[in-house]
């Protein structure tokens, strides 16, 4: 009885904390979090039509879903145009020239060194993952758009897909029992096994968890800092803080361009590395 009382009081405390300080940070959250409407420049808000729930899950497309589709469409369009170039000639032109560099980078610097000879099987997956995250990250840098890669649900889902890919890759190459037997390093004394097995199983899940949190935190941090810097102008109530705020905001924005690229690279690189570790267990 006392415990439930405690929870209730804590709840009210945290709620009041939120509402009291919320007036200052709510608008930042409003820009970063998912929403049921899309903000268009000079036109106001567009409400997304509600869909009936499927199996008790609300599947209404949100703002992040819409921008995910936009990113997916852009990826598709861009890479279709790139692929079309190669149909006419093997010499890359304009767009193909630029994207070829990235594709070759993913192939030669990410997939091949970590996966060895097996890289060809996983290359389409790694390329899709890289371009999907890359376009999502860059799309989030455009004003009035939303960064769907800064949503924990999206990054967690991508991490789960990566996790499944890692396990499937390992099982396919080493066999079902061979893979799970290979998870525990060789030459371990028998009495250590009760300790090692849970540790290794835990290790399987920490990898995608770290992937999800890393991308989510990196993508949300820059946006929050920019919004906070701009908010400083209104918080201080003076125009003289504006040059400093804007200068720092531009700096963070430029940094975010770098972060957008690096995070797409790191997510793909680590996924590739984990697949490589699952495929070649002898290390």
């Amino acid at each position: 009885m006392a415990a439930s009382n405690n929870i209730d009081t804590l709840k009210t405390v945290s709620d009041t904390l939120k509402t009291s300080s919320g007036s200052d940070s709510d608008w930042i959250m409003h820009h970063i979090l998912d929403a049921k409407e899309i903000e268009l420049p000079f036109l106001g808000y567009v409400h997304i039509p509600q869909l009936p729930p499927v199996f008790g899950i609300d599947v209404t497309p949100t703002k992040h879903v819409v921008f995910m589709w936009i990113a997916a469409f852009l990826v598709l369009l861009t890479l279709y145009l790139v692929a079309r170039n190669y149909k006419t000639s093997l010499i890359p032109k304009r767009l193909a020239n630029f994207f070829e560099v990235i594709i070759i980078f993913v192939r030669d610097e990410i997939a091949e060194p970590t996966l060895g000879k097996a890289y060809k099987t996983f290359l389409p997956f790694l390329l899709t993952l890289f371009f999907f995250i890359l376009f999502g990250n860059f799309l989030g840098l455009i004003p009035f758009s939303a960064t769907f890669t800064s949503n924990i649900a999206v990054t967690a889902t991508l991490a789960i897909i990566s996790f499944l890919m890692i396990q499937l890759g390992g099982i396919r190459h080493n066999g079902f029992f061979g893979y799970f037997k290979g998870l525990v390093p060789h030459g371990i004394p028998m009495w250590l096994l009760p300790l090692m097995i849970p540790v290794e199983i835990l290790g399987l899940f920490t990898k995608p968890f770290a992937l999800a949190i890393r991308l989510f935190a990196n993508m949300i941090a820059g946006h929050t800092v920019i919004l906070a810097l701009i908010g400083l102008i209104f918080f201080m109530g003076t125009i003289f803080i504006a040059p400093i705020s804007v200068a720092f905001a531009v700096f963070i924005y430029l940094l975010e361009i770098l972060v957008a690229l690096i995070q797409a690279y790191i997510f793909t690189m680590l996924t590739s590395l984990f697949i490589g570790m699952a495929v070649h267990q002898e290390h």
Binding site: D34, T62, M68, A72, V75, L76, V154, I161
Partner: peptide, 28 residues
């Protein structure tokens, strides 16, 4: 948001399948 997770899975898998056929195979 579970709905968002479902949409992510669907979007990613469709994107992967289309790209595999339309882009990766010819490009690679």
């Amino acid at each position: 948001n579970p709905g968002l997770m479902i949409w992510t899975v669907i979007t990613f898998i469709i994107l992967l399948l289309i790209l595999k056929k339309v882009a990766w195979k010819p490009i690679l």
